[in-house]
């Protein structure tokens, strides 16, 4: 009976399989194929197999970029956890009315393009921009802070762009919490702090982890954040890929960089699966 049900489902899923094969699987295969080709004179590639593209990634310039991207992704993720977890947690504990309002506030920014919003931050951060004017007006600082085109500005942009995913992910797992478990822990002698870490935190781990995946992976690839808020000062893997495709006109090298980036993100997802799988009984609750 179970098998029969599975079959009828796979028939329904056929369009989705087709879509995935056409728009996800084939492009990836094609990209991997290109990454082993040679660069053409003007645009595109010559069908001449080489490992040259991958060898080039080992050059310090590119290797450093990977390391820098990983560091930025790591910093961003840690900060997003620190901000997003409490935010999502308290949001889930609000009354239904306030929950709806907060949800609305979180959604409004998504109505405009993220490029537009990031350029808004340029106005805030630039020398003698909104932030400087306010700080200097209040007498907190005396000179422009020169925040724009700096590493902190890029980290800020990443947090701004990615925090909602963490918040929503934590929110939905806190929402599902059975609070009588917390009462049981307190009844068994745990003070509120211990009860939080033993029960709530452990049980909302799946939400936190999926938030981490949703933050860490995009933060390695969000080249436009680094572009807009970091200028040429902060270069990430995403920026190099974009540069090689446009200015560099080196499609095979861009493909090779993308393949490595993809492998890295797949490893992170595999790691996530492993951790989440070990806690299958937790995620199984959801």
């Amino acid at each position: 009976m179970k098998i029969k049900r599975k079959h009828s489902f796979s028939a329904l899923l056929l369009p989705m399989y087709l879509f995935t094969i056409l728009f996800v699987f084939l492009p990836i295969v094609y990209m991997i194929y290109i990454s082993f080709m040679t660069r053409a004179e003007v645009w595109g590639f010559d069908t001449h197999v080489t490992l040259q593209n991958y060898m080039r990634i080992l050059e310090p310039l590119y290797l450093d970029t990977f390391v820098r991207s990983l560091k930025l992704a790591f910093t961003t993720t840690v900060l997003v956890i620190l901000i997003g977890y409490p935010f999502g947690y308290f949001m889930a504990k609000l009354s239904a009315k306030w929950k709806a309002r907060m949800m609305m506030l979180m959604m409004i920014p998504f109505w405009t393009s993220s490029l537009v919003r990031l350029n808004g931050w340029v106005i805030v951060f630039q020398s003698n921009g909104v932030l400087d004017k306010i700080l200097m007006g209040l007498g907190i600082t005396t000179e422009p802070l020169k925040l724009l085109y700096s590493y902190p500005a890029v980290v800020f942009g990443m947090i701004y762009a990615l925090c909602p995913f963490m918040i929503l992910s934590v929110y939905s797992s806190v929402e599902k919490m059975d609070w009588s478990l917390l009462e049981a822990a307190v009844d068994l002698g745990a003070n509120r702090r211990k009860a939080f870490f033993d029960i709530t935190f452990k049980m909302t781990m799946p939400g936190l982890l999926s938030g981490v995946v949703l933050t860490f992976i995009p933060s390695m690839g969000l080249f436009f954040v680094a572009d807009i808020l970091g200028g040429s000062k902060v270069v990430l893997v995403g920026n190099i890929i974009q540069e090689q495709l446009t200015k560099g006109r080196n499609v095979p090298f861009a493909a090779a960089l993308s393949v490595i980036l993809m492998i890295m993100t797949s490893l992170i997802i595999a790691l996530y699966r492993k951790i989440a799988g070990a806690d299958a009984n937790i995620s199984g609750l959801g």
Partner: peptide, 20 residues
């Protein structure tokens, strides 16, 4: 007195076993 300091324990109606 705080509940975690009371020498009293409860068996909850839905058992409230820690699933993890």
């Amino acid at each position: 007195k705080e509940p975690y300091l009371r020498d009293v324990n409860m068996v909850f109606q839905n058992y409230a076993l820690f699933p993890h």
